[in-house]
């Protein structure tokens, strides 16, 4: 047990991961532009899910307002780019700092006043919605009219200014998601990861063992928020337009958390598996409902699929899938 824990992956799992990566690296050369755009959506979902997973999956604090950090990251870097021509690589650091600060402040306020569980979840929604309405009236970033980035010249990619084709974003996101995977894995192996899991399983017991619960919960929130904001920057430069009502939408917060829950909350690969499944499902439903021309059909099947998953595999698909494929992952 100890040896395999140190390794993290069995040889078979390592081989499967290598194969998966090779396929992902080659895919843009094999498929058409539409599939690439869908894969970009998958990778966004996977990365946001991985970021959220640290807060809720590892440290056990249910956040339902992660759109807030997507929005802060997106708006900070985009506004700095539009108004001052600042490169998004510096803008994203500013965005991450803003989001980390906001996340720590929200977490500190909540946990200082012992707001936990369902109340904490509702508080995160409240802060996200509050910020959305503020941005609706924030003229410097376009308010409800939206903030637009100069359209990219697709002839050649310009990674310095993050102007380019979906393929460029695909590879950027792939690297980002892989980095998040490595980071999550190494965090779980460290003291901080064990502390988080102790807090998740039993906060009082963790406190009794001398863990500074307050500090570690804030650290989880700050890291999760900063990672989410980094994805938000990429989203802003990929979409080229930002509206408060879509960027900060409650629907986005919910979308962010469905993939990791369905994939397997607190697992390393759950967010990625969930992102593939959900985006694939969503695209299929969109195509089907366009074919049948019934509005609402997509959402209906989407809801039914969620219901089926929560009924059949409530702890997520990855634990089941990894067992079925004979891959072994240390549980959480």
């Amino acid at each position: 047990m100890r040896a395999s824990r140190a390794l993290g992956l069995s040889p078979r799992a390592a081989a499967a991961l290598g194969l998966f990566l090779a396929v992902m690296l080659l895919l843009p050369f094999l498929v058409n532009a539409y599939i690439v755009s869908v894969l970009v959506v998958v990778l966004f979902a996977a990365y946001f899910g991985q970021s959220w997973n640290i807060m809720t999956g590892f440290a056990g604090q249910l956040s339902l307002g992660h759109a807030l950090y997507v929005g802060l990251g997106a708006y900070t870097s985009a506004a700095l780019f539009v108004h001052f021509g600042l490169t998004p690589w510096l803008g994203m650091i500013a965005g991450m700092a803003v989001a980390a600060l906001a996340g720590s402040a929200i977490a500190a306020l909540s946990f200082r006043f012992r707001v936990g569980g369902v109340y904490f979840a509702l508080l995160t929604i409240a802060f996200a919605e509050f910020t959305r309405i503020l941005f609706d009236h924030f003229g410097w970033v376009g308010a409800t009219e939206g903030l637009f980035l100069p359209v990219a010249n697709l002839a050649h990619d310009d990674p310095v200014r993050l102007r380019g084709s979906p393929v460029m974003f695909y590879y950027l996101l792939l690297v980002l998601s892989l980095a998040a995977l490595v980071l999550s894995h190494s965090l779980l192996d460290r003291r901080v990861g064990y502390y988080w899991q102790a807090i998740r399983e039993d906060e009082e017991a963790a406190r009794a063992l001398g863990i500074d619960v307050f500090r570690y919960k804030i650290a989880a929130m700050a890291l999760s928020a900063a990672m989410t904001a980094l994805g938000g920057t990429l989203l802003a430069f990929y979409d080229n337009n930002l509206y408060p009502d879509t960027v900060f939408a409650m629907g986005r917060s919910i979308e962010i958390i469905i993939a990791p829950i369905i994939g397997g909350l607190g697992t390393l690969f759950g967010p990625i598996v969930g992102a593939f499944l959900l985006t694939g499902l969503g695209e299929t439903m969109t195509n089907l409902s366009t074919y049948f021309e019934i509005s609402g059909l997509k959402q209906w099947f989407y809801g039914a699929a969620l219901l089926a998953i929560v009924a059949l595999q409530p702890s997520g698909l990855w634990p089941w899938l990894s067992r079925a494929l004979g891959l072994w992952e240390r549980r959480r």
């Binding site: 569980g117 979840a121 829950i261 019934i294 609402g296 059909l297 959402q299 219901l307």
Partner: peptide, 21 residues
């Protein structure tokens, strides 16, 4: 909590979709 959330979210999605249809 998160399983209950997902369950009711699924119910909510299906109600809205049914009304839409």
């Amino acid at each position: 909590d998160h399983e209950q959330f997902l369950l009711l979210l699924a119910v909510a999605t299906m109600i809205t979709a049914s009304l839409l249809m």
